[in-house]
Simulated scan of single mutants.
Amino acid sequence: MLLMFNRVGERNPNRTVPRLQELTWHLWQGERLPGGHYLYDRKIPIIAVGPNQLRQLGPAGAVFRRFGRPYNQTLLKAIGNPRREAHDIRQQAEYDARQREHQEELRRIAAQHKAEREARRPVCADCGARFTDERWKAVEPAGWSATRESHPHLCGDCKQRVHAAEREAV
């Protein structure tokens, strides 16, 4: 709410503005938060200006006084909450940093699990090649009723060669 006070008649703006602030404090007074800023949710920004100041410095000048603030500001700063905006930016930066740390921790854990899994991967007893995921799954015990793998210590290629040699021998 923008109020313009003009020095016309017997009312003095220097006495009227403080009295108006006192009567309307519950409408504009923000709640101080631990971050050093105020929360103005459900509050009305009441701003006072005089035509002489407005004429001298123009509408872009620091001529607007928001109730509760002891100094004049530009209109955008008077209706805004720069401390809260700075606080929100700091909070977002901290959140982003925590997210990056968390993602890095997840990547590190995934790499560690992958390295541990690769260390457990079986090796062919004949050629020394590591088993593929499919071959590893095929030689893993699946239960009592599952058919047993004929050559669980050989990779797929070596197993085929052994089977071919066994068929030729027969």
Rank of each mutant, 00 (worst) to 15 (best):
A60K: 06
M1Q: 09
N6E: 15
R42Q: 14
H102C: 11
F64M: 01
E168Y: 10
Y95C: 08
C124H: 03
Q29D: 14
A111C: 05
R32E: 13
P59M: 11
R148Y: 07
G9M: 04
R83C: 02
R130M: 11
R55P: 00
E22D: 13
P70W: 07
V17A: 02
L3N: 02
A169K: 11
A111P: 01
C158T: 06
R7G: 08
G80H: 01
P122I: 07
Q92N: 11
V123L: 12
R148K: 14
M4Y: 07
R11P: 04
E118I: 06
P141T: 10
L27Q: 11
W144R: 15
P45Y: 03
R148P: 04
C155K: 00
Q92H: 11
A146C: 07
H153G: 15
R167P: 02
I109S: 08
C127T: 09
V139L: 03
N52A: 13
Q21F: 08
G156K: 14
T132I: 03
R90E: 14
M1D: 08
H113Y: 11
W136N: 04
E134K: 14
R98V: 05
L3I: 14
K77G: 07
R66Q: 07
R15S: 09
D96W: 04
E168W: 11
L3E: 02
R90D: 12
E22R: 11
D88M: 13
Q29S: 13
L106W: 03
F64R: 00
R19T: 11
V49E: 00
H163Y: 12
T147N: 12
P152Q: 05
L39E: 14
P82M: 03
L75T: 00
D126F: 10
Q21K: 15
K137I: 09
Y71Q: 13
P51G: 07
R120P: 02
Q29P: 05
K43T: 06
G80D: 01
Q160N: 12
P18Y: 05
F64A: 01
R69G: 04
V63M: 00
Q73E: 15
G68A: 09
P82S: 05
L75G: 00
P152E: 05
W28A: 02
L39R: 15
E104P: 06
C155R: 00
E168K: 15
G128M: 09
A78Q: 01
Q56N: 10
T24K: 03
L54C: 01
R98S: 10
Q21W: 10
I89A: 15
C155Q: 01
P18L: 05
G143E: 03
L3P: 00
R19C: 07
C155I: 04
V63I: 07
H153L: 12
R90Q: 13
C158E: 06
Q92C: 08
A119D: 09
P34H: 04
M1N: 09
V139F: 03
D88L: 14
I44Y: 07
K137N: 12
R117L: 15
R107G: 08
W144C: 09
N81H: 04
E31N: 12
D157T: 14
R90N: 12
R117H: 14
R98Q: 13
R167E: 12
V17C: 01
E101K: 14
C158G: 05
A125E: 14
E166A: 15
E101L: 15
L20F: 12
G30T: 03
G143F: 02
L27N: 07
A129H: 10
P34N: 08
E149M: 13
A142Y: 07
E85Y: 10
T24V: 06
G36Q: 02
L154T: 01
R135I: 01
K159T: 15
E140S: 12
